[in-house]
Design a protein around this nucleic acid. Structure first.
Lengths: 119, 119
DNA sequence: TCTCTATCTTGACAGCCATCAATCCAAGGG
DNA sequence: CCCTTGGATTGATGGCTGTCAAGATAGAGA
């Protein structure tokens, strides 16, 4: 399932190049929808900008006025979208972002040229 | 309102640079959420890839098995998010994408370096 | 002005989503 | 082996969203 997703996203031309197929649109929308929540966007940026590129849940819960289960739910959504990955080391679970997923999304938004050629 | 949005988005560093503020996250999430629907993503790509960079509603409705009002609703969501703009010329309404909005989103996803420095 | 066509808006309903309380699982420390 | 702690899962609920039918609006042409 994750492989299909990566495939559909990885093969997409920028939006302006040619129309998306229905299947590509479904897979891409899954990613964008996962980022369409303020809490999840902040979680993503907290993890991405944290020292070492990874953060444990204990670092994340204090930032929000939300209960543990709610944070866990949002992390699960991000994880199932392939935007982050979690790993248990001892007592705590550590999360880190998947840079490839972000790069693929970015590549869909703008022409390839803008990603490889200087201004 | 649109000015606030553009401001909040335009000033954002990439996710990995520093954590998003709550306000920035709300504004960014509004954009990502607007793209979190397969129909809207396809509409966006149809408009962006259409000849001349613009498309009228009549070009869009035939592609989907959806009624006119539903297409109109999705176009309204995209318009209110600042991703497209519509203009009435005679009988038909023509839509075109706002490339700046896409560029800003892309800039949030990856470090600035990737946008200006060759691989 | 009247009518026709193309498009947008409103109202309503089914389905999904974010949130929390309660519960369960997994890892360490006694 | 039990107890404690960190974290995930389940169940339930209120609010939001996508969809369509019906009505409203705006140009174009006669």
């Amino acid at each position: 399932m994750l492989a299909d997703l990566a495939d559909a996203v990885g093969c997409c031309s920028p939006l302006a190049r040619e129309p998306l197929s229905a299947g590509q649109a479904v897979e891409l929308a899954r990613l964008f929808k996962a980022m369409g929540d303020p809490v999840r966007l902040r979680l993503l940026s907290l993890i991405a900008s944290h020292e070492g590129g990874e953060a444990c849940v204990c670092d994340l819960t204090d930032v929000f006025d939300l209960t543990g289960p709610t944070i866990s739910h949002h992390l699960k959504v991000l994880r199932e979208a392939g935007l982050i990955s979690g790993e248990r080391r001892g007592t705590w679970v550590y999360y880190r972002v998947q840079p490839e997923a972000l790069r693929r999304l970015s590549a869909v938004l703008v022409p390839d040229d803008a990603l490889t050629v200087p201004a």
